[in-house]
Structure formats: C-alpha cells, structure tokens
Nucleic acid binder design. Structure first.
Lengths: 356, 356
DNA sequence: CTGTTAGCGCATTCAG
DNA sequence: CTGAATGCGCTAACAG
C-alpha cells in the first residue's frame, strides 16, 4: 500500500484538476491543448503538479464528443493470418502515430459478416476515416460511410462501383517482372495459380497481366495457363500435377507462379507431399508475396512494398480528413523481385539444356 | 446521385430521430437499449422507420460518456509478426464479440516505448480492461491501470511484481512432453535454444523446465544444454554448430529444441545455409509454436492452445469488469505435441542404431 | 492572461 | 406507456 492517492478508483476529471490547481477548467484545457505561452509560468506549474498528483488523463471520448473529432481511424483487415496484412498494418500504424491518429484495428478473419459488422461498429465509434482491406464488403456498405462524410481508402483491392482512393501493388508490372525473370531463366511453360478471382480486383489484375504478358511474348516462345485454386477445396491440385507431368514428358521447363502467399504455401505443401523434401529440384515455384518461409524454402518471390502501402493509405486518408476534395486517386507501388534458388536456370529441369 | 438523403454529411443524432419520429429522445433511447415492451408497437414502428430513413447510428462515445462504460477493451500485442500473437488475437476477438466488447488492438512492434505509449492511449480512451502480451512494460505502468480500477490480464508472460490474472501455456508440461518425445525417439543429446530469457517469464519457465526435466532423467541417459540466441545478433549460431559437430563425432544423436517459432525459424535458416536443403537429414529440430511453415518443413512442434488462451483471457477480464473481486488467477493450458518427420527415430542419426 | 457559460449526443431520474 | 430536464468530461466562445 504505497502511495494510495485518494484516487479511489474513479479517474480524475478536468474539474478535479482545476480544483486541485485552484483554477478553472479552461486553463487546464488550454494547458492540455498546448496553448502554451498563454498561461503564466506560475499557473502552468501548478497545473502540472495537479495533473501529476492526480495522475490525470484527459478523456478522449468527451474530448471527441465536443470537438467532433476523436482522432480514431478504422483499419479493417480481411485476414491477419496473411503476413501481407500484418506488414501493411505496420505501415499504417507508423503513419497513424506520425499524424496523431489512433488506429482501430478490426480483424474480419475472412468472414464477410464480420466485415459488415465491424464497419458498422466503426461508424458507431465515429471514426474519422477508414482503411479497408476487405474480402467481400459491397459497394453499398462502404457508400454508407462515404455518404456520411467518412473518407475511405482501399488497400490492395478495389470495390466494384465505389470511387475512392486506393493503394496497392502495381500488379501488372509485378507480374510482368516475374514472367520476364522466369523466361530469362529458361522456363518455357508457366502455370499461374490463383484463388477464385472474380470478386477480388487484385487477383483479377494479376491474372489478366499474366495472360497479357504471355500473349505479348508470343505463344511460340512460352506457353502459359491459369489454374484456379480454392484453398478450401484443393482438388485442382491434381490438375497441377497433370500439367507438370505432361510438361516434363515433353521436356519442357515448367514453373509454377503463385498469385499470393497462401496459394504458394498450399502448393508447396502439396508438392512436398508428392515429391518429398526434394520437391524443389523437381518443380520450380515462385510467388507474389515474400513470406517468412520463402527464404527457408529458397523460393523466388516478388516482395510487395507493404509498408509503403500502409503509409500511403494513411496519407490519403489524412488529406481527406483534413478536408481535401480531389478526385479519387490510385496509387500503385512497384514490387521488388527477390531471386532465390527455386528459379535458378539449373533447377527443376528434367534434362539440362543450356547453361555454361 | 441516387437517394440523396438530406443527410448532409453530418450524421443523424438521437434528437433528429426523435423529431423525425415525432416523439422525445427518451423513447428513442429506450428503443436502442432494447427496453422493448415498454413502447407501444405503434411508436416502435415509427421509430424504426425514422432510424432507417436517417441511417442513424447511436454515438458510442456519447453513450460511453454518459454510462461510464464504453465496451472497449484494449489488447496490447508485442509482435503481430509472431503467428502466436495473431492466433491468440483471434480467440480474443471471438470472445469479445460474444461478450459485446470491442477490442482495441495495439501493436507495439517489439518497441518498449510504443508499449508504454499505447497503454497510456488506452487509458485515455477509457477502456474497461486490458489484455497485455508485452515485451517490456514494467510493473509500474500496469499498476497505474489497475490502481485506476482497470482490470489487466496478462497473456503468455507474467510481469514481475504485478499480481493479476494470467493465462498462457503450461510451459513446464509442454517442455516435459517434448523432451519425453525426443528421448523416446532415441535422441540422447538435447540443445535448448532460447532468446535472452531473463526478462520474459515464459522463456524463463521453459528454460527451467528443460533443465529440470533433463536433470530428472539422469545425466547418464541424456545430456542437455541451453543456448541463448539473440535474434539480432546470431553469433551464437556458431556455438550451435560446434555442439552439433561434437555430438556427431561422438556418435551421439543430437536434437535442437527451439523455445519458440522465431528461434526455430532463425535456426532452420542457418542450418539450411550450412547443410543445404537436406539439413533435416543432418540435424533434428523441433520447437514450441506450430507455425505455418512447420508443416512444410516437416518439423515436430508443440502447438499452443492459442485460441483458448485468447478466449480465456477475455473471460477473466469480463468477470473483473463485471465486478468480480477474487484473488489473481493463473490459467495454464496444455500444449499439444505435433509429431512430424524431423524427429522420427530414423532421422538425423549419423549412424543408424536401433529401429526395426 | 484567466474564469464563466453553454452545449457535444446520449441515458437517466422524475413527473405526467 | 411517454416526455422534459439534468449532467457525463470536455472545448469553445465570451466576457472579465
């Protein structure tokens, strides 16, 4: 029972501090809001003492109620299990601190219902803006926010019918870069593996970029195909196997290209099951998203500028919160190719053609 | 410009709804608080209409200000990059929803300063309780909360000098289980690899359990040693190498036992660097924490009951928020051994002794 | 430079 | 069953 500050449970309020300091609430408020220089040093000292003595902390709720702004911004994350999201989050957090916002993180755990619920909750807490990286929120749910004057910025994926700021990877260029790498390493058959992409714009873009790039290369040089893989039902994995076998029978060098980390992991697990620990010598795998195990597996990837994406999202949000009225912007940041052993010219070739 | 609800930016307040429904604010408030049966069906309908028309959402801030409780609970996470934390988080979130709380997630990103800052911020937002999984918060920072009447429950690690509810893995039993497994598989030299553990109670417990268990086994049968690995400065990795080499020269079967996932990953990366993709055939590795790549690497682990830990933490918190005044509790949940190839009797034995 | 006053949006007495 | 009044903790005019 050391310093038992009469602080009997209830936290001190501004009134308590005023009384303790022998002054009015206004002065306390002024002090809190850094209206320094407007207070006599003598008063300021008394205030500081009182605050310390009572361990006073201004109540943000009351503050927000009065001012109309509570410095809260919502961050809706589809899946924290995905390292991509966590990394973006870190950028968001850092930027939030820099601007003085408190990020309210909502994790929808891939549940569309939860997404909607969280969005409502955020409304209810009167967040000043929302960063959304969601799976299935519809245009109308979000529209209700924007109509209410709450800016929204989308991360990674666009939402059909909604015009707002959006920031994410330059998917087209990322895919192009990856394919160029694969081709330069001598692969002549590419299999793009992606989750059902109709609903998710980033997946759609990646798939389109894949087809376009392959097309531009000319079928004669490189052939490509897209495989849709549903993580909850991986029967399409057998199709992948078939493709691999066929390619290798024809002495073609095939490489799998996973559209993101979850897909890459699923595919890797399967390949390991089928080919044993040495699977990497049998088939080349690369992916978008540079997850922690990529290094362990020696897998080539395109690393997303996740941190910057998060930062940028907050910047956009901040501008709009501050009242900027500009047309919806789109910020596409470049990815970075991380070359590892999985796609080296030597690897996974049934017969070694080429190489000095 | 479809349905442009006069809702000119500003969100509707309870007063607006009252006016729209042609009644007083009290009735609206009653409706919102589910004081059903106290309102004539006719009035209720009018209210529902008005709410829908204005797209009204009660302001939680104002609500909390008045009631003195805002249903916010803080969750301080040391490192979201660690899958352990994310999993615990999921349990926390689920339980929060069940009890009607809104979890305010704070990610300290392993920065002690941030931890303290976030804790203050949470105070400021008048959270009703806090779940803490932190790296370096001191007893006094937390004490300031509890003294303010805000319950705190610790996850995974205890904080010196602070008596509160705590929930985590039953470290002692988990380590014992792991060692039993290793020994049953014929390993006779165990190397426990752990991050600096003086400050972190769970690491300390694991290390102690390791030594105790080995001791109880009798030095004649199995020998063990602890290696401290600092992730930011892995020069101790050479010591690990030396131990491995020595053991193998003496024809002893050595196994590495990582105290958690980050350590396991660092060690695995190193072993792969040193021994190539086949490293698993050279040295056995197991760990506490069943991360996503464990399956890919075929590594034996002890899976923590992360989800339950999160749930349990919220339960404790809820009870205290509801006013329970009981002595500090400690809830140690059992881990689950997940056996994979890395510790099979065959693996990583320099000379195969034993096995049918 | 400093104190007084009036709400922010809502829940709660307390009277109809 | 319903509504008018009061105040939660704080800021923002307004006066001294």
């Amino acid at each position: 029972m050391a310093r038992d500050n009469f602080s009997n449970d209830r936290r001190a309020t501004i009134t308590d501090v005023a009384r303790e300091a022998g002054t009015g609430k206004t002065s306390i408020s002024r002090y809190l809001n850094g209206e320094t220089g407007v207070l006599s040093t003598e008063l300021r000292e008394r205030i500081e003492e009182a605050i310390a003595k009572l361990d006073y902390r201004p109540n943000q709720m009351a503050r927000g109620l009065k001012r109309g702004r509570n410095r809260l911004v919502g961050m809706l994350v589809a899946d924290l299990t995905n390292p991509y999201s966590v990394e973006v989050l870190q950028g968001v957090e850092a930027a939030c601190h820099a601007y003085g916002y408190m990020p309210l993180i909502c994790h929808a755990a891939n549940e569309v219902d939860l997404e909607r619920r969280y969005l409502q909750l955020l409304t209810t807490y009167r967040v000043e803006g929302v960063i959304v990286n969601a799976l299935g929120v519809k245009e109308d749910t979000l529209e209700s926010l924007t109509r209410g004057g709450v800016p929204v910025v989308l991360v990674d994926r666009a939402v059909e019918g909604l015009v707002t700021d959006m920031v994410g990877l330059d998917n087209t260029e990322a895919v192009r870069m990856a394919i160029r790498h694969l081709v330069s390493q001598g692969f002549d058959e590419l299999l793009f593996v992606v989750q059902p992409y109709a609903q998710v714009s980033s997946r759609r873009m990646r798939e389109a970029a894949f087809r376009d790039t392959i097309g531009a290369l000319g079928v004669s040089r490189v052939s490509g195909a897209t495989i849709v893989l549903d993580l909850d039902n991986d029967e399409t994995l057998v199709e992948i196997d078939a493709r691999i076998d066929a390619a290798q029978r024809q002495n073609r060098r095939i490489a799998l290209f996973a559209a993101n980390a979850p897909v890459a992991l699923r595919v890797a697990l399967h390949l390991k099951d089928r080919h044993g620990v040495d699977w990497q010598r049998r088939v080349a795998l690369m992916s978008i998203d540079d997850s922690e195990w990529a290094e362990l597996a020696g897998m080539t990837t395109v690393r997303q500028p996740t941190y910057s994406i998060g930062e940028r999202a907050v910047e956009f949000l901040h501008e709009r919160i501050e009242g900027a009225v500009v047309a919806a912007r789109e910020c596409l940041l470049p990815g970075e190719l991380v070359v590892r052993a999985s796609t080296s010219a030597m690897a996974s070739s049934p017969t070694n053609h080429g190489g000095t």
